[in-house]
Lab assay of single mutants.
Amino acid sequence: PTIVLKVSPEELKALEKAGVEIEKIEKNEDGELYITLTPEALKKAGFE
């Protein structure tokens, strides 16, 4: 199962800087950012 999270541009930068593997980055028509994370990326980021 993949996880989709709504993030701010600042959060996205912080995640990328931390080396979190982001599978997909999407922006909706309201300009909101959503990222898709794999279970492996979540484990690496410390989420179980």
Rank of each mutant, 00 (worst) to 15 (best):
K13A: 12
F47Q: 08
G46Y: 04
S8E: 03
K13G: 07
V20Y: 03
A18H: 08
E26H: 09
P39G: 09
L5Q: 02
A41K: 02
G19L: 05
S8W: 04
E10A: 13
K6H: 06
I3R: 12
I35S: 00
A41R: 02
K17D: 10
S8K: 11
E26T: 11
L15C: 03
E32M: 14
D30I: 13
K43T: 08
T2Y: 15
F47H: 09
E23L: 14
Y34P: 00
S8V: 03
K44C: 06
V7N: 00
K17I: 11
T36P: 00
T36C: 06
A18T: 06
L12I: 08
T36M: 08
N28T: 11
E21V: 05
E40L: 09
Y34E: 05
G31I: 01
V20M: 03
E40P: 03
E11H: 13
K44I: 08
E23H: 09
V4L: 10
E10V: 11
I35W: 00
G46N: 03
L5W: 14
G19E: 06
A14T: 14
E23T: 08
L15K: 00
E29P: 09
T38K: 05
K13D: 11
K13T: 10
E48C: 08
E40K: 04
K24V: 06
E29M: 10
I3S: 04
V20Q: 01
A45P: 06
P39F: 15
I25Q: 03
L15I: 13
T2V: 12
K44G: 07
K17N: 09
K43E: 14
L33E: 01
T36W: 15
E26Y: 14
A18N: 09
L42N: 02
T36Q: 06
L5R: 09
V4I: 08
A41W: 09
I35D: 00
K43A: 14
A14L: 15
Y34D: 01
K44V: 08
E40N: 04
V7L: 07
L37S: 04
E16M: 14
L12W: 09
L15S: 00
I22A: 02
L37R: 00
E11C: 15
G31N: 07
I25H: 02
E29Y: 10
E23M: 13
E26D: 09
L33K: 01
K27L: 13
T36D: 01
I22L: 07
K17Q: 10
E26C: 14
E48M: 07
L37N: 00
T38R: 04
K27V: 12
S8A: 05
E48L: 13
G46I: 04
A14Y: 14
L37D: 00
L33G: 01
D30A: 11
E21M: 07
K13E: 10
V7I: 13
A45Y: 08
A45L: 12
P9G: 07
E29C: 06
P9T: 08
G31V: 01
V7S: 02
A18D: 04
V20T: 03
E48V: 06
V4A: 04
L15E: 00
V4F: 11
E23Y: 15
P1T: 12
K6E: 01
L12M: 07
A18W: 14
E29Q: 11
E48F: 06
E26F: 14
S8G: 07
A45M: 08
E10R: 12
S8L: 07
G31L: 03
A45T: 03
F47A: 07
F47E: 06
I25N: 01
E21T: 07
K6A: 05
E10H: 10
A18M: 14
G19D: 04
E11L: 15
A18I: 11
K43F: 08
K27F: 13
E11F: 15
D30Y: 13
E21R: 06
E16I: 13
G31E: 04
G46P: 03
P9D: 06
I25Y: 06
V4M: 10
E29R: 11
K17H: 09
G19H: 07
T2E: 04
E26N: 07
L12V: 05
E26K: 04
E29N: 10
L42D: 01
G19V: 01
I3C: 13
A45F: 10
E21A: 08
T36S: 08
I35H: 00
V7Y: 01
I3M: 11
V7A: 02
L5N: 01
A18Y: 12
G19F: 06
I25T: 06
P9S: 09
N28M: 10
G19Q: 06
K24I: 07
F47V: 12
N28Y: 08
P39S: 11
T2N: 13
E23I: 12
L42M: 13
L12K: 02
E40T: 06
L12N: 00
E11N: 06
I3N: 03
K17M: 12
T36R: 07
L12F: 10
I35K: 00
E10S: 13
K17W: 12
V20G: 01
I35Q: 00
E10D: 12
K44W: 02
E16C: 12
L37Y: 02
K13L: 13
Y34Q: 05
K24N: 10
K24L: 09
I35M: 02
K43R: 14
A14H: 12
A41S: 07
L12Q: 01
E11Q: 15
K6D: 00
L42K: 03
Y34I: 09
S8I: 02
V4D: 02
P39E: 15
P39D: 12
P1D: 09
T38Q: 05
T38M: 04
K44L: 10
E32V: 12
L42I: 08
T36H: 13
K6F: 10
A14K: 14
Y34T: 07
V4G: 02
V4T: 12
K27E: 10
E16H: 12
L12H: 02
K44F: 05
D30K: 11
I22T: 02
T38I: 02
E48Y: 03
K17T: 10
G46E: 04
A41G: 05
K17L: 11
E10C: 15
S8Y: 03
P39A: 14
I25R: 03
K6R: 14
G31M: 03
E21Q: 08
N28E: 04
I22S: 01
E10I: 12
L37E: 00
K27H: 11
E26R: 08
K24G: 06
I35Y: 01
E26V: 09
E32W: 14
E11K: 14
A45G: 10
V7D: 00
E23D: 07
D30G: 10
L42T: 04
G46A: 04
V20W: 04
P39C: 15
L12S: 01
K13M: 13
E48I: 12
E29H: 10
A41F: 03
K44P: 02
K13Q: 10
I35N: 00
K43C: 07
L5I: 05
T38E: 04
A41L: 02
K43H: 09
S8M: 05
T38V: 02
P1L: 13
T2A: 12
E32Y: 14
A14D: 05
K43M: 12
E32R: 10
E32G: 11
L33M: 08
E40D: 07
E23Q: 09
L12A: 03
V20K: 00
I22P: 04
E21K: 05
K13C: 12
L33W: 10
I22F: 10
F47R: 08
K17C: 08
G31Q: 03
E11R: 14
P1M: 13
A18C: 14
L42Q: 06
V20F: 04
E40Q: 08
K17Y: 12
E23N: 09
E29G: 12
G46T: 02
T2D: 05
V20R: 01
D30P: 03
K6Q: 05
L42Y: 15
L33Y: 12
A45N: 03
V7W: 01
L15D: 00
E48G: 07
V7H: 00
P9M: 06
E29K: 12
K24Y: 08
P1I: 11
L12E: 00
I3Y: 12
Y34W: 14
E21H: 07
E32H: 14
K27P: 07
K6P: 01
I22R: 01
I22V: 06
A41N: 08
V7P: 00
E11I: 15
L12C: 03
L42V: 10
K6L: 07
G46W: 06
A18G: 08
K44Y: 03
Y34V: 07
K43G: 08
K24T: 06
P1E: 11
T2P: 13
E21G: 05
G19N: 07
L15A: 02
K24S: 11
I22K: 00
E16S: 12
E32D: 12
G31K: 03
F47C: 13
L37I: 11
L33S: 03
V4R: 12
I25W: 07
N28W: 08
A18E: 06
E40M: 09
E10Q: 12
P9L: 07
T2F: 15
P1H: 10
K24F: 09
T2Q: 10
P39H: 15
L42E: 02
P9A: 09
N28S: 10
T38L: 03
K27I: 12
K43N: 13
A45V: 06
Y34G: 01
P39W: 15
E16R: 15
T38N: 04
L42S: 04
N28D: 09
K27N: 07
E40I: 05
K43W: 09
V4C: 09
T38A: 04
K44S: 07
I22C: 03
E40H: 06
T38C: 05
E48P: 15
D30M: 13
L5K: 05
E29L: 10
E32I: 11
G46V: 03
T36N: 02
E48K: 02
T36G: 02
I3L: 05
G31A: 03
E32N: 11
E16Y: 15
A45W: 10
F47T: 06
E16Q: 13
V4Y: 12
I22G: 01
K6C: 07
S8C: 09
Y34L: 09
L12Y: 08
I22W: 08
P9E: 06
A41Y: 02
E16T: 13
T38D: 05
L5A: 02
A18L: 15
L42C: 10
P39V: 15
E21N: 07
E10K: 11
L42P: 02
Y34S: 05
E16N: 12
A14V: 14
K27G: 08
L5M: 13
L33A: 04
